[in-house]
Simulated assay, not measured.
Amino acid sequence: MKFTSVVAAGTAVVLSLALAACSGGGDEGGGGDDDVVVTMLPKNLGNPYFEASTAGAQEAADELGVAVEEVGPDAASPDAQVPFINTAAQQGVNALVVSANDPTAIGDALEEARSAGTKVVTFDSDTEPQFRDLFVNQASAEGIADKQLELISEQIGGEGEIAILSASANATNQNAWIALMEEKLASDYPEIELVEVVYGDDDDQTSFDKTAALLQSHPDLKGIVSPTTVGIAAAARYVSTSEYQGEVAVTGLGTPNQMREYVEDGTVEAFALWNPTDLGYLATQAAAALVAGDITGEEGETFEAGRLGEYTVGADGEVLLGEPFVYDASNIADFDF
């Protein structure tokens, strides 16, 4: 079964696909023959990172015997996500798995969806806890901040000016990581100066242009940290064909397929990420467990997540996938996403 991508053209349209849930034996899966539909709502469509997470969602759905739909806007903005949330609620989907473009702006729409009986799981980028049932976090905020600072420090020799190329100014996850990086720079990296934070809005051309502007504005810049897969690829693309290749380090969070050529040509030494396929897989497993009534989102509850094993719900309904993984020339050929 293939997932369905639906793009907004004024009003969101959600295709009501359903597949009979596995009947199974005993109390597995909450029982019953009800049709179960899980709607995936990434920040925006056409983003390789979210394409990988939706592939993971589809893998989980195939195992669970449920239907997965992918819907979403072209542009990563909270206003653009709201119509999709509203339509999902109106269609009565069982679960909505969303990467939030803003922690509060989509809250009212999510509350209405929950009131209509839709379970809400955030993944990748969270809302305020009251707006959802669970948050499937790719890694701890501290772990992500620490890894990015560790990488940039190693690559610039522990001193010099750096800049951050983020996604949108309202992205919950980006802002949390940046705040922690700012704190840790002051306490743990006194010889590294953060000179500017800019926003590429998870758009390739905007991120490319922001990279050019950073390098023009800061002639002594030694490194760029981009905690977004679109941004790091755009920054690497600019640096790879410029006078700054080999002089300005580029690191952050990226996918192996996007970054392979830049690692191979020496533009990028190393970068980090988790596996977005696993993230989408886990989010869908968690959504199915909520729909089945196996968990409610309370701290301490456990559920089985297929090939990933057992997970425990933490404080504020958070489920943690794991720690960031570093990709470099020694291992990047082993991955294909």
Rank of each mutant, 00 (worst) to 15 (best):
F131P: 05
R132E: 06
V136L: 02
Q138C: 06
Q138I: 14
Q138N: 09
E142P: 08
G143L: 01
D146G: 03
K147I: 07
L149M: 14
L149V: 12
Q155D: 13
G157S: 11
E159C: 06
E161R: 03
A163H: 04
I164N: 05
I164H: 03
I164Y: 01
L165R: 04
A167I: 09
A167W: 00
S168C: 06
N170A: 13
T172K: 08
Q174T: 12
N175A: 11
A176S: 13
W177K: 03
A179F: 02
M181S: 09
M181E: 15
E183A: 11
A186E: 14
S187G: 13
D188N: 15
Y189A: 02
P190H: 03
P190L: 03
I192G: 04
L194D: 08
V198H: 01
V198M: 01
V198G: 02
Y199Q: 00
G200D: 03
D201K: 05
D203C: 12
D204P: 00
D204H: 15
D204L: 13
D204N: 10
Q205P: 02
Q205E: 14
S207C: 09
F208L: 11
D209R: 06
D209W: 01
K210R: 14
K210D: 13
T211C: 05
L214K: 00
Q216F: 07
S217N: 11
S217I: 05
H218L: 12
P219W: 06
D220Q: 13
L221E: 12
K222E: 12
K222Q: 11
G223L: 01
G223D: 12
I224V: 13
I224C: 01
V225G: 11
V225T: 09
V230H: 03
V230Y: 02
G231I: 05
G231E: 06
I232K: 03
A233L: 10
A236Q: 08
A236V: 09
Y238I: 09
V239Q: 00
V239K: 00
S242K: 03
E243G: 14
G246S: 01
G246K: 06
E247M: 06
A249I: 01
G252F: 00
L253K: 12
G254W: 01
T255Y: 00
T255Q: 09
P256H: 08
P256G: 08
Q258F: 05
M259D: 08
M259C: 10
R260V: 14
Y262T: 07
V263E: 07
V263Q: 02
E264Q: 15
